[in-house]
Nucleic acid binder design. Structure first.
Length: 636
RNA sequence: GGGCGCGUAGUCUAGCAUGGAUAAGGCGCCAGCCUUCGAAGUUGGAGGCCCCAGGUUCGAAUCCUGGCGCGCCCGCCA
């Protein structure tokens, strides 16, 4: 990246490169090791960058690190006088601390943001690459509970962030319309009373299912009837199949209402029935059997099954059963078999046999398509990366799928298959279970409703004269934000215990605090008169400088989270919490600035400069909130 | 039996990848700040064997080894 370019779209990186330049000249070390030893001091009074190079050199030269630091610092302080971005270099013990020019950084940063506007924070680092994300894949037999929302929100935020760094993203949902639950519900639906008035269809099915499952487990005759339904579902022209399609479709429509409230949209819904009956599996099976380690034994307990021999793979050699069945002896697929085929489809290894039709127009004005027999062919194009957002309990099966891909010779695709893992959301006394119905009272709709209700109370208190429509609108935005933020702010590898008092706490480290900082900034800006020119070097109080630095760091923070996604044995880490932490910190620094630096009431020169800073803040915060899928609120 | 994750003030968490200066926040508690751009805010305070024991290192919440506690995973199931 050229200096001129990074100067505009990544001010912090630009500033750091200046420090590296100088250290390079003085120490003659390579840039990489200099950058590795450059850190942020624990306290801003100790400067903006610090190098620990003296520790390493001390060992080499067998000298006191503090002495070495002193020598280097002496040399640097001469050189640094030619660099406008630096004001001071001070040695403290073994550390050498660099102080940036507050005015210069403010000028550089604010101008960057005002030039880039909504694109500030974005980069074209990964331009030309395409990614596919599968999330959240909730069974179409019940409403989303708050745990499903965690998946959906992680998937959506990942999609936003990938787009910000240049990827083209395909947002995909998987609809399992062939599970046992579906057969049970189709059986039940025949003589069930319809939904109660005002009852959402997904809630209705969820309620039915709890009852059905109890009958199913205690009654053999029912079990036999459900199996019969299951068989008939395979005939796509059957009454049952048509009823099932309608039921699932209605359920997905209802679940989508919940997704929309969370700002979550998709491009495609892939139904399991399409995977099962489009010929995809047969094609996949044929391709798999060409691989030496995948075969059909003629004897033993796996006779006539298609199995993958995993003993060749080191990490699975301790498995109880290293022969993984992909297709059963009766020719039907196992979950793993279907998952491998589906993963092959995602990468375009198998030519797309699916046909599609419009499912609905979403509130974001974009269409979402579903797979449908008799629909049209679509060209989804090749993707480079696939992210499956799935609970961490699926780590082992996911790795199996990727390893089998590798076994099949698709090394690149195996490497580029990512299981974005997260822990479940639970209650203090139980986990969420569709069978037991423990989700009741904790559906995503319930949580969003309560959040909205509480938000409306607060909004009404502060805006008694506003219309009801205004209050409802803002309350919904605050509710959505609060729920999304809670789910993203927890590290994905940590289990969340759901508690109402946490979910509905609008103070402190929570979304309304972020939205509030934006609203305050908006208040100032709407009262200001346009003033083109401003001397940004006047921005040099502690509070202004801290805010400027945080704004400057935004592009690097976005990139850092994406580049920090590393593949581990248990899945691929995606630190949503790092992004929320950045955002919260940014809001905190604005609040401090707000309290200590009057804008509209200060002298004209300061006023002009501060107005631009407020503008830069609002742009940055809005961009950050957009990545997180949290609505930007103008007034609350 | 084997594998993976988690363990940090009363409580909920961040920091651990790549070791570095006084362990950072929220909630709760105590005490201040609205005749100055919105108090969903802000300033200060109390509160800690960073699960335990060893080891590596000039330096460990962070890395290594061995424990302990909690959760999850290892089917021709779904």
């Amino acid at each position: 990246m050229s200096n001129a370019k990074s100067r505009i779209d990544n001010p912090w990186q630009f500033a750091r490169s200046k420090v590296v330049d100088i250290l390079e000249k003085v120490t003659q070390l390579d840039r990489e090791s200099i950058a590795d030893n450059l850190e942020t001091p624990p306290d801003s009074s100790l400067g903006d960058f610090a190098t620990t190079l003296a520790f390493g050199l001390a060992k080499e030269k067998k000298k006191n690190p503090a002495k070495i630091a002193e020598d280097i610092a002496k040399e640097i302080s001469e050189l640094s006088k030619t660099e406008a971005l630096l004001t001071a270099v001070k040695q403290k013990g073994p550390y050498i601390n660099f102080y940036l020019s507050r005015g210069e950084l403010a000028d550089l940063t604010v101008k960057s943001v005002l030039t880039m506007e909504t694109a500030y924070g974005n980069s074209d680092e990964y331009k030309g690459l395409r990614a596919l994300i599968e999330s959240p894949a909730v069974n179409p037999s019940k409403p989303w509970h708050i745990g499903h929302a965690r998946n959906a929100v992680i998937g959506d935020t990942l999609a936003n962030m990938l787009e910000a760094v240049g990827y083209a993203v395909l947002r995909m949902d998987y609809i399992n319309d062939l599970g046992l639950q579906i057969a049970q519900l189709v059986w039940k639906l025949k003589d069930a009373e319809g939904p109660e008035s005002n009852e959402k269809y997904d809630h209705y099915l969820g309620r039915l299912y709890v009852g059905v499952n109890e009958t199913f487990e205690s009654n053999e005759r029912v079990e036999e009837q459900v199996r019969e339904v299951s068989r008939r579902l395979e005939d796509l022209k059957s009454k049952e199949a048509k009823r099932s399609d309608k039921m699932v479709s209605d359920c997905v429509e209802a679940q989508s209402q919940t997704a929309y409230r969370l700002n979550i949209y998709h491009d495609y819904h892939i139904w399991e029935s399409m995977i099962a009956y489009s010929g995809l599996l047969e094609q996949a099976k044929e391709m798999m059997l060409k691989c030496d380690n995948i075969f059909i034994p003629d004897e033993g307990d796996k006779k006539d099954c298609v199995i993958a021999d995993l003993t060749a793979i080191d990490e699975f050699k301790d498995m109880k059963e290293p022969n993984k069945v992909l297709f059963r002896s009766d020719g039907t697929r196992t979950y793993t078999g279907a998952d491998v085929a589906f993963q092959m489809w995602k990468f375009g290894i198998i030519e797309d046999p699916f046909t599609y039709s419009l499912f609905e127009e979403q509130p974001n004005d974009k269409p979402v398509y579903r797979t449908k027999f008799g629909g049209k062919k679509h060209d989804l194009g090749k993707v480079n990366l696939v992210f499956n957002v799935i609970g961490s309990g699926q780590a082992h099966p996911q790795r199996l799928v990727y390893s089998i891909m590798d076994l099949l010779g698709y090394h690149e695709q195996a490497k580029n298959s990512h299981h974005v893992a997260y822990e479940f959301v639970g209650l203090e006394e139980a986990d969420f279970s569709g069978r037991k119905g423990t989700w009741r009272g904790y559906s995503c709709d319930d949580v969003l409703d309560k959040a909205r209700e509480l938000a409306k109370k607060e909004v009404s208190k502060r805006n008694p004269d506003e219309s009801d429509a205004f209050k409802n609108h803002v309350a919904e935005q605050i509710g959505t934000g609060a729920v999304r933020y809670r789910l993203l702010n927890a590290s994905p590898d940590r289990r969340i215990t759901f508690r109402w008092e946490d979910a509905l706490d609008f103070n402190g480290d929570a979304a309304p605090y972020l939205q509030y900082s934006c609203a305050r900034a908006s208040r100032i800006l709407e009262r200001a008169v346009e003033d083109e020119s401003a001397d940004l070097s006047l921005l040099n109080t502690n509070e202004e400088f801290a805010l400027v630095k945080a704004i400057a760091r935004f592009p690097e923070e976005v990139l850092g989270v994406i580049q920090g996604m590393t593949k581990q044995v248990w899945g691929t880490s995606f630190s949503t919490n790092r992004m929320t932490a950045y955002c919260y910190n940014l809001a905190t620094l604005f609040s401090r600035f707000y309290d200590s630096c009057p804008v509209l009431k200060s002298e004209p020169d300061f006023r002009a400069a501060r107005l631009q800073l407020v503008q830069a803040f609002r742009i940055t915060m809005s961009n950050c909130l957009r990545l997180l899928g949290i609505p930007v609120v103008e007034r609350m």
